[in-house]
């Protein structure tokens, strides 16, 4: 299956692990990713905060480039990019002539949040067929953050207060997704650079609850969530008077692990909080 692909800026930089794991598993799942030629940044929080029109038009330009491709599906791994593309298509379909200097072309592919796409029945079945090492004994909580689901009017998510995509994928791999109430609570995202105190408060609450429900690790589908949860655990733990050491896995890394895809160890080596020891305890040794 060939699909259009919009990696977004951070997958070309700090979220290299996410990018590599996506390439690795798509090969094993029979998905051929074709990057949108000459795509641009979606504008992210900065644009929608202080430059509404530009935020819509930036995402609109990329959507129009995707329309020129022959594919009917566009996969977007970054929930922020996904949200901005969906917002732009929503806004431009309603109000393009008056407010925005860009017109959306017809033949727009369906815009998918990557986790939602890989949690469809067909993809879950393909994933199950390719299983080599079930992730037995791994007990995790799924963490979705904000942008893949909210607001549902834009994202078209049906279970936005208690999303299931990551949970279905985790269970399908043989691991346990522990139910918890903080799946869609905010991590503070880019405020890590401007108000790290706010991020410490929000992320500390997540660790505290993950610990209380007995999770060994946290599974995410967003590189901003991953960075905020993975990088500052020691510091945030100290502020909470605790020691946290949760591995923070991308769901794609877990699929790669269960499929014995090569490269898993390399992806994980890019994390800050040790992701390997837990897997070794469970006798899950990823390929180099």
């Amino acid at each position: 299956m060939k699909v259009a692909y919009y990696p977004g800026c951070s997958l070309e930089g700090t979220a290299k692990d996410y990018a590599e794991s996506i390439q690795g598993i798509c090969a094993s799942l029979g998905i051929e990713l074709e990057e949108i030629p000459d795509w641009n940044c979606c504008g992210a929080t900065a644009a929608h905060s202080i430059h509404h029109r530009a935020g819509v038009e930036l995402a609109g330009r990329t959507l129009n480039l995707a329309s020129q491709m022959p594919h009917s599906d566009l996969l977007v791994p970054c929930p922020m990019c996904f949200n901005r593309l969906k917002t732009a298509s929503w806004a431009l379909n309603r109000d393009s002539a008056n407010r925005y200097g860009i017109v959306l072309q017809d033949s727009l592919p369906s815009v998918w949040d990557l986790a939602t796409f890989l949690a469809t029945d067909a993809m879950l079945q393909t994933t199950a067929e390719n299983m080599r090492t079930p992730l037995e004994g791994l007990q995790v909580v799924s963490y979705y953050g904000c942008m893949a689901n909210r607001p549902p009017e834009i994202t078209e998510a049906d279970n936005f207060e208690n999303p299931q995509a990551l949970d279905r994928i985790i269970q399908n791999l043989g691991a346990t997704a522990i139910p918890w109430a903080y799946k869609t609570d905010c991590c503070g995202a880019s405020q890590v650079l401007s108000r790290p105190d706010i991020v410490s408060h929000l992320v500390g609450k997540l660790y505290d609850m993950a610990e209380r429900v007995g999770a060994q690790a946290i599974v995410v589908s967003c590189q901003m969530c991953q960075a905020n949860l993975d990088m500052h655990q020691e510091k945030i733990g100290a502020e909470w008077g605790k020691r946290f050491s949760f591995p923070v896995y991308y769901f794609t890394e877990l699929i790669g692990l269960a499929h014995n895809v090569s490269g898993v160890k390399r992806w994980l080596s890019r994390h800050i909080t040790d992701p390997i020891s837990l897997l070794e305890q469970l006798n899950l040794r990823g390929n180099p």
């Binding site: 795509w39 641009n40 940044c41 900065a46 202080i50």
Partner: peptide, 17 residues
């Protein structure tokens, strides 16, 4: 943060961390 992000985006067309 917003302004410098947009400046970088203007510079390259993408944002380079």
């Amino acid at each position: 943060l917003h302004n410098i992000f947009l400046k970088d985006l203007k510079r390259w067309g993408r944002v380079c961390e």
